[in-house]
Design a protein around this nucleic acid. Sequence first.
RNA 1: GUGCCAGUAGCUCAAUGGCAGAGCAUCGCACUGUGGAUGCGAGGGCUGUGGGUUCGAAACCCAUCUGGCACCCCA
Length: 429
Amino acid sequence: MKKIIYPIKGTRDFYPEIKAVHTWLYSKVRKVSESYGYQEYEGPYLESIDLYAAKSGEELVKEQSFVFPDRSGELITLRPELTPTLARMVAQRQKQLIYPLRWWSFGPFWRYEKPQKGRSREFFQWNIDLIGLNSPQADTELIAIVANFFKEVGLTPHQVKIFVNDRKLMETELNSLGIANNDQPTVFRLIDRREKMAEGDWVQYAMDEGLNQSQINGIIALLENKGLWKKSSNLEQIFETLQAVNLMSFVEYDPNIIRGLDYYTSTVFEAKDIGGNVRRSILGGGRYDNLLADVGGEPLPAVGFAMGDVVISLILENYGCIPPQIFQPPAKVLVTTFSAETLLASLSLAEDLREHGINTFSYPETTNLNKQLKFADRMKIPYVIILGPDEIAQNSCTVKCLVDGKQERIPIEEISGKLSRILADEFNL
RNA sequence: GUGCCAGUAGCUCAAUGGCAGAGCAUCGCACUGUGGAUGCGAGGGCUGUGGGUUCGAAACCCAUCUGGCACCCCA
């Protein structure tokens, strides 16, 4: 094959069968979001780099964003995440919006990453946020939305799990080990890496960062204490509420969950594939009570999460959760063309069917029936209409069902009604 | 941005320095008013790209692109 122009590295082509999965995922995201009353919104795909500079974390802005000058020389960013945009949009209309505010979005984002499985440079994200409430039960609502999304797409608690922690709890505990708040970003990073490193290497790394042996032992004890949540009234209430709404089976406490973004202030959570081999996190979120003030608004508490489409699609495919019937031809009927003499009659009949609300393929070229039936078969079109000289002479047409192979000849004026009834019965159209 | 592995027909892969192949798919015919099945036949390749070594390279070397794995980071 001659390759002339390559696609941009890390982008994906959505061929119809892939686009169908994407559309299906979008519909599930919409369904779950709306079931809790959240409203859909969208921000611009281009933002000023200043919006992220303050709060998203050094790495995300400096290393992972697509940044370029516009024609006036101003630095423009292809948005790497949505939360700062949301904060900006809310701050701009802070006085006129109605709180608590529940918004969701599903749109494209860009990060300059090394592409590999589960990670691309152009991807979609589901963002959902609850702004204006500061209670454990508000955090629980977001976690419950995740659990309900998993149920909606057919994932089970044996396959995926939502791990929850509280940064405030960790801060307090680290303080009592004599680790000052200023040093905590380093320690958080240390915690983040523990699962990926050999024990000895990790201890050495911790000592290189200036921790003493008793602090290291203290941190290890923290991270292995699955009951640490009992020291946090916030987490206690979250788990109690999840228990009450019968969703706790999807949730687990994990003191190792810290999250990378700088703006999280308290509750943090992350969902992972525990039954399979996809190591990347499915989604992550938490409470960010300072961000509104940081982008110039009045202080407003907020909680939310983001889920990328790439990892979840992989997992859904691995677990066989994607229904095969989502990829179907939009039309269930093909009106064949018999000959040059009958071509116009066929096209006219097809147009008539469409006017009756029946999605219909035409075959706007004269070729043998063999080929047209084979096309219908391969496209999984269940019904074909044959309109040859015999049918036309009798003012009729032949309708053939490719599923059972049966066919019958009926008066032409009855065809649209008959097809409407059949399709309504079989496909609930 | 770092390290490792891979790239051969539309797809999955074989050929390990000596004529580039198989299965599936595609197309044609049997079957010009009827799809799937079967049989027969055909097309399809600058072996990711560019250089080098060699009498000879898909194979060995260098570079580069793309993908995958582990880092980094994260959706």
